[in-house]
Design a protein around this nucleic acid. Structure first.
Lengths: 110, 110
DNA sequence: ATGATTCACCTAGATTGTCTAGGTTTAATT
DNA sequence: AATTAAACCTAGACAATCTAGGTGAATCAT
C-alpha cells in the first residue's frame, strides 16, 4: 500500500486559518483555497470543517466578518483578524512548534 | 496570559505509542512514562486516552499483549509491536513529517 | 435566452479521539 | 495494619472533523 492520504491534523485548523488571515481579510472559500495551495496540495480543508471553525473563531472574537464581494464577483463574507486573533495566532504558533519539537524528541529516540 | 499548556495533538498518540514500542515491549503505564520523559515533560498521555488507544491498536493488529511482570514487580500487560505495527509506524512517521512540512509551508507564508 | 456549471455559503448528523472522573486489584511502604 | 503507589480498566462527556447533503446567484456554453 502507498501511504494513506493524510486528512487534516485535528487541532491545527484554527492555526492555519489565523495564519492565512494574517496576510489580510479573505472569505471562507478563499481561505480553504489558500491553505490548499500554500501547502502544495497536501492539506485540504473540507467546507464542513471550515464553516463551523469560522463560527467558533468568530464567537471567540478572533475574527470578524463583513459582507462584501469576492474577486470573482460573488457575494462573500470577508473575515478579518481582530487584535485578539493576532494574540491567538502568536499563541497557537508557539504551541505548535513546542508540540513539533516534543514529538520530534520522542521520534528520534533509539 | 502565558501560553496555554498544550494537551496531546489529536491523531499523534498512535504514532507515539508505536514509536516507543519500537524499542522493545513495554506495558501501558511504562509507555506513558516513556513518552512523558522523552518529550521532556511536554507530552502527557492520560490513562483514559492510553488504554482505549492500546485496544484500538491491538484490534488493528499493530501490537500484541502478553501478561507478565513489570520492572517494579507488578502484574503488567506487555505490548509488543507486530510486523503490521512496524509497517504502520513507518507509514505514520511519513505522514507526520509530510504534515509538519505542509503546515510549515502555510506558516511561513508572508 | 436557456441550461449547466461554478462560486460561495450553510448545516445536520455521524464518527472519532481524547479527557474527566471515577473504579479495582495487588505489591510495597510506613 | 493501614496507606500509598503501580497498573489496569471503563462509562460518559466533549470537541473537532467529515460526509453528504442543501441553497442561491453569477458566469459560461450553446
Amino acid at each position: 500500500m502507498p501511504p494513506k492520504k493524510p486528512e487534516l491534523l485535528s487541532g491545527t485548523l484554527d492555526l492555519l486559518i489565523l495564519r492565512v488571515l494574517n496576510g489580510g481579510p479573505l472569505h471562507g472559500f478563499a481561505i480553504a483555497e489558500r491553505i490548499h495551495v500554500l501547502s502544495r496540495e497536501v492539506l485540504t480543508v473540507e467546507e464542513g470543517s471550515l464553516y463551523p471553525a469560522l463560527y467558533r473563531m468568530e464567537a471567540k472574537g478572533w475574527i470578524e466578518p463583513e459582507w462584501g464581494i469576492s474577486p470573482r464577483g460573488r457575494r462573500a463574507k470577508l473575515y478579518a483578524l481582530t487584535k485578539d486573533g493576532r494574540k491567538q495566532l502568536a499563541n497557537e504558533q508557539q504551541i505548535w512548534s513546542q508540540m513539533v519539537f516534543a514529538i520530534g524528541d520522542v521520534l528520534k529516540n533509539t
